[in-house]
């Protein structure tokens, strides 16, 4: 059976994020180099997204307002969903995501900073410290992501998402505080936060591998924005979890 017949019969990958857009060898071979994804382009675009995020975070930090915060959260969520299902639009939706998340992060950081002075700079330092150290580990081959590694990280991330969703539902409809240790500052609560920080950090390795292989296979240029977007999503999650972990430790 030929490759095209097989695709017609069985269909393409069901993964909405990757799908058939990672078919570098056949689809993108004839594209000019200037239209292909590069490592440098992706890193530069990550820089642009970080700058946009910092800019709106500074606004939200100086003018703390719950409306700004929740608008940022909502718009960020919509922009993220559009980017995941329509990566060709990433060049416009990824900057919107970064701007919106900046509003959200600035607001939430002010709240933590008011309670625990100095916590914001600690969380920022540890987030970027984790990013750089995992990049070194990935580039040098100390951490080698495999299919099993991917299975474990994707599954653990899904498990954590499920736990958070059930917690939100229990808080909304159960009347209690949901799954207790998610917010507790006891040994179990801190252990859970450490586990989540670990999983969020290891998601960065998957992002690095996606970007590395994307540039090797010469994916189209818009995938640079998509790669930068996926790094931003993980960094935002990692920052929030580190913030929560530090708050739990300091509240003891």
């Amino acid at each position: 059976m030929s490759r095209h017949q097989a695709l017609d019969t069985f269909g393409r990958s069901g993964n909405p994020v990757m799908g058939n857009k990672f078919d570098g060898d056949a689809q993108f071979r004839d594209m000019p180099i200037s239209q292909k994804m590069t490592l440098e382009g992706t890193v530069n675009k990550t820089g642009i997204l970080l700058l946009l995020c910092f800019a709106t975070a500074a606004v939200s930090w100086n003018i703390p307002n719950p409306i700004l915060m929740f608008t940022g959260m909502g718009v960020g969520l919509i922009a993220a969903i559009i980017t995941i299902f329509k990566p060709t639009m990433a060049s416009s939706t990824a900057p919107v995501y970064a701007l919106a998340q900046g509003l959200f992060l600035g607001g939430i950081t002010v709240m933590f900073e008011a309670q625990y002075p100095g916590i914001a700079i600690q969380a920022i330092g540890l987030t970027f410290g984790t990013l750089a150290s995992l990049l070194v580990c990935y580039k040098t081959g100390i951490i080698k992501p495999t299919e099993n590694f991917r299975l474990m990280i994707v599954s653990a991330t899904a498990g954590i998402a499920l736990l958070y969703m059930v917690n939100i539902l229990m808080t909304m409809f159960g009347g209690g505080s949901g799954i207790g240790f998610i917010h507790s500052n006891g040994l179990m609560g801190i252990g859970f936060s450490l586990f989540v920080v670990g999983i969020a950090a290891l998601n960065l390795v998957l992002d690095f591998d996606f970007i590395e292989q994307g540039s090797e296979n010469g994916l189209p240029k818009h995938m640079e924005w998509f790669g930068a977007f996926s790094l931003m999503v993980t960094l935002v999650w990692l920052y929030l979890e580190i913030l929560r972990l530090l708050a739990k430790i300091r509240s003891n």
Partner: peptide
């Protein structure tokens, strides 16, 4: 860390990785 990311990120990963 940001300086390291922007510098190292532009280089290809080692052969041990690729």
């Amino acid at each position: 860390s940001l300086a390291a990311f922007f510098y190292l990120g532009k280089f290809k990963a080692s052969k041990a990785q690729t």
